[in-house]
Simulated assay, not measured.
Amino acid sequence: MIIVKTREEIELMRESALIVSKTLGALAPEVKPGVTTLELDKIAETCIRDHGAVPGFLGLYDFPNSLCMSPNEQVVHGIPNDKPLENGDIISIDCGALKNGFYGDHAYTFEVGEVEPATKKLLEVAKASLYKGIEQFKFGNRVGDVGYAIQQYCEAHGYGIVRELVGHGVGASMHEDPEMPNYGRRGRGKKFIEGMVVAIEPMVNRGTHRIKQHRDGWTITTRDGEPSAHFEHDVALVDGKPELLSTFKYIYDALGIVSDEEDAFRAQPITN
């Protein structure tokens, strides 16, 4: 069942989403060769708690940390550890925060040092596909319209779209209806309605779309060992159109990146 949010609840969700966005922004300058994912996890937990929230992932389904940290061929759900990141790595950082009874859930794949051009291209396409999907999250469309847009864009560039892992509704629970696959057929699936909030999150592999789960019960990697990229936004359906609750602005400010990619989906300016 889809749980529709009121305008007041959407604003509370925006607060939670922006705490996650600010946390990812705080991590951005720290993602560099030599740092461990456990060190980044501690920074994130402190940042989330300093904003009056609690880490959304810590203890959720018995997950042991505040961040899912997935380098290189890891797709999602990687567990932070004491292995230092290396020059040329990429790492997906997925973060959640719970405040005022609502979750924010948001992810970005970072470059570590100097990354090879083929991997940079993967990240560019994966992030662009996120916005291709968000464009289709509008009144009258269906779940399949979002998945189709993401799939067609990524496969046109020769990349694999993960099937087994999907986006989702988000609200008072981290995972709500509807599931939001990153593949599909136009005009199929549940219809979008005013007040829905979803997490759209393409998981895009440089090689095959096939994946495998590891014995820790969490870590998911590509089956062929090729790198994978993951980007995620929280999006509300407001006045029939997609409105971003999360933002990459704090990441871009930290890294000196100029971008207008979010402008079409932003109803109000983001302040510091």
Rank of each mutant, 00 (worst) to 15 (best):
K138G: 01
I220T: 09
P64M: 12
Y108F: 15
K138P: 00
F248T: 03
S16R: 06
Q268C: 01
T271Q: 14
K5N: 14
V166Y: 07
L38Y: 13
N182W: 01
G217Y: 09
V162C: 14
Y183G: 01
D263V: 06
D62G: 00
A28D: 13
K42T: 10
V198A: 02
S129N: 04
P178G: 05
F110C: 06
E45A: 12
V76W: 03
S66K: 04
A97E: 08
K32Y: 04
D105W: 12
V54I: 15
V162K: 07
D89G: 02
A254S: 14
F192R: 03
D260Y: 09
C68L: 14
G169M: 02
N141S: 13
E194H: 02
K212L: 13
I193C: 02
R206A: 14
G34S: 08
A44K: 08
E232P: 00
R215I: 12
M174N: 05
G189N: 03
K42M: 14
I200D: 04
K191M: 14
Q268P: 00
T109W: 10
S228P: 01
G34Y: 11
P80V: 06
G88C: 01
G189R: 02
K22C: 06
F137W: 07
P117W: 06
G59E: 11
I251M: 09
E114Y: 01
R188S: 13
G167N: 04
V76M: 14
L67M: 14
I211K: 06
F63V: 02
A53H: 03
N87H: 06
Q151R: 08
P55N: 11
V125G: 04
L123Q: 05
G88T: 01
E179W: 07
S259E: 08
I43S: 09
K191R: 15
K5Y: 13
Y183Q: 07
C68E: 15
V258N: 10
L237K: 03
A199C: 14
Y183T: 01
A128G: 05
Q213V: 13
V235H: 08
E86F: 03
S92G: 13
Y148G: 00
K5T: 00
A17W: 08
K22A: 13
L123G: 02
P84F: 10
G133E: 09
S92L: 09
N272F: 13
T221Q: 08
S228Y: 02
